[in-house]
């Protein structure tokens, strides 16, 4: 099976004295569903940041989508990111744009034609049951709805990989379940690789997944 992510002896740190992740080695298979858990401040989000190239490694190597991130130019990193969908706890929607435009963002960046993008956005908004809210702005929606918009945006350009950082951290049970269903659906139906950083894994999940845990900077697989 192809590997979407391969980390070897990966060490991450924001400064010289404080190492967050120590010599982590792990891999993520294409089409798999992976959870990364750990206590607050354990380095889960830091690890995720390194996966989308926002943080350089201190040592070791990290390959995402066949590209070694440490040796990548900013132009190539932009290109790689066009194949990744990202979901955050705080949604990170552009407040001054409508829901429709927010979902369209990855398609605009990838250079899709306007009519194709329009159709794809309608399909996705209907998939996340928000097609009636297309013309609204993010702050007019509830937290759960905003996260569904963020999910639709992450799926818009058919990415090979979705990275989610505490995607249900701010949501109630119902909205959380909707998000888990969407992630499961993307993994099941589209075979998109999903990496989720979370405090706890939902019990309702029906799919097979891989689980990594971080403790004291050490990343290990939980069987």
């Amino acid at each position: 099976m192809d590997k979407v992510i391969v980390a070897k002896d990966l060490t991450l740190a924001y400064n010289e004295d404080e190492v967050i992740i120590k010599e982590a080695s792990f891999s993520v298979d294409s089409g798999s569903f992976v959870f990364i858990t750990g206590a607050s401040g354990s380095g889960k989000s830091t690890l995720l940041k390194s996966l989308y190239g926002a943080l350089d490694s201190k040592s070791g190597s990290l390959i995402v989508g066949g590209v070694e991130l440490d040796k990548i130019s900013s132009k190539k990193l932009d290109f790689l990111r066009r194949h990744i969908g990202i979901v955050f706890q705080d949604y990170k929607l552009v407040k001054e744009w409508t829901i429709e435009k927010n979902v369209m963002l990855p398609l605009i960046i990838s250079g899709y034609a306007k009519d194709v993008s329009g159709m794809q956005v309608q399909k996705l908004l209907s998939h996340v049951k928000l097609n009636h809210q297309a013309g609204k702005y993010p702050l007019e929606l509830s937290g759960g709805e905003q996260q569904r918009v963020a999910m639709a945006r992450a799926l818009a350009h058919n990415p090979i990989l979705i990275l989610a950082d505490e995607p249900t951290g701010n949501l109630d049970d119902y909205s959380s379940q909707v998000i888990w269903n969407l992630l499961e659906g993307a993994n099941n139906q589209l075979k998109t690789t999903i990496v989720v950083v979370t405090h706890h894994i939902p019990e309702s999940l029906t799919i097979k997944y891989k689980h990594y845990h971080i403790e004291y900077g050490v990343v290990y697989e939980v069987s």
Partner: peptide, 16 residues
């Protein structure tokens, strides 16, 4: 900045 950061996360080139 916020919008530029979000666009960067999805691989928007600097000019965009």
């Amino acid at each position: 900045q916020e919008r530029m950061n979000i666009m960067a996360l999805f691989g928007a080139p600097i000019w965009l």
